[in-house]
């Protein structure tokens, strides 16, 4: 688990990273609630977008490894590509788990209206997995960290908008509403709606199942061994 430890240390190596990683969830707890929409406080509604950004920022380490030729050195080291990827992703997931825990339990602690906090935590965790896998796939298309981040930012805004995280999906035209189903953020928004309004457990399982399916898809595409 050397890679795992090293990745963890690298992720929180400087104060800026540490602040971004752990201050935001704390700040997000205290963000106010909207008047009509969203039903959850803003910090919780927009946490999905934050997860996406953090995933990309974290998986930037893999891209950095590729750019600096560390991936090449690793490919001749006695460590498999699978093990390297798995330990990296596990470290990122651990950081995201911590953030989700801080956010949800902080909310419960300070008496925020979270409807079903436990299911919210589960939803955030599943979305984190899909999001890390998505970031892994995303960086496999790029050779440069900055460019990948820039394009990702603009794309995330669109995904979040169409997916129904930024604004209620009902406000969108019908065609876009249908296209939105193909986006992971749509399922996150659906999951949040389920947590607020309740419903059959089957529905919540579908949401999580879809996110896990997305995770598998992105992992399969993103796990290509790239040495540049």
């Amino acid at each position: 688990m050397t890679v795992f430890h090293y990745v963890l240390k690298r992720s929180i190596a400087n104060k800026t990273s540490l602040l971004i990683l752990f201050l935001f969830p704390v700040v997000a707890i205290f963000l106010p609630s909207g008047e009509y929409w969203p039903h959850l406080p803003y910090g919780y509604q927009y946490f999905g977008i934050f997860i996406l950004f953090i995933s990309l920022k974290l998986s930037g380490l893999i891209l950095e490894d590729r750019m600096r030729g560390i991936a090449k050195k690793l490919s001749i080291a006695p460590i498999s590509h699978f093990s390297y990827l798995a330990q990296n992703l596990l470290a990122y997931f651990l950081i995201l788990v911590l953030q989700c825990l801080i956010l949800v339990y902080g909310g419960v602690f300070f008496g925020k209206e979270l409807y079903q906090p436990f299911w919210l935590l589960i939803l955030f965790l599943t979305f984190s997995m899909a999001s890390i896998a998505f970031a892994l796939m995303w960086i496999s298309f790029f050779r440069n960290k900055e460019i990948s981040m820039l394009i990702f930012m603009s794309m995330i805004s669109v995904i979040a908008l169409i997916g129904g995280v930024l604004i209620p999906i009902e406000l969108l035209p019908e065609v876009l509403q249908k296209v939105a189903i193909t986006l992971p953020t749509f399922w996150l928004a659906w999951g949040i709606d389920w947590i607020i309004f309740g419903g059959e457990v089957k529905e919540f399982l579908l949401v999580n199942g879809m996110l896990i399916l997305y995770m598998f898809l992105f992992l399969i595409i993103g796990s290509v061994k790239k040495l540049h």
Binding site: M210, L213, Y214, F216, L217, I220, I221
Partner: peptide
């Protein structure tokens, strides 16, 4: 999505 996963 399932077909896409099988394909990839």
């Amino acid at each position: 999505l399932l077909l896409l996963i099988v394909m990839s």
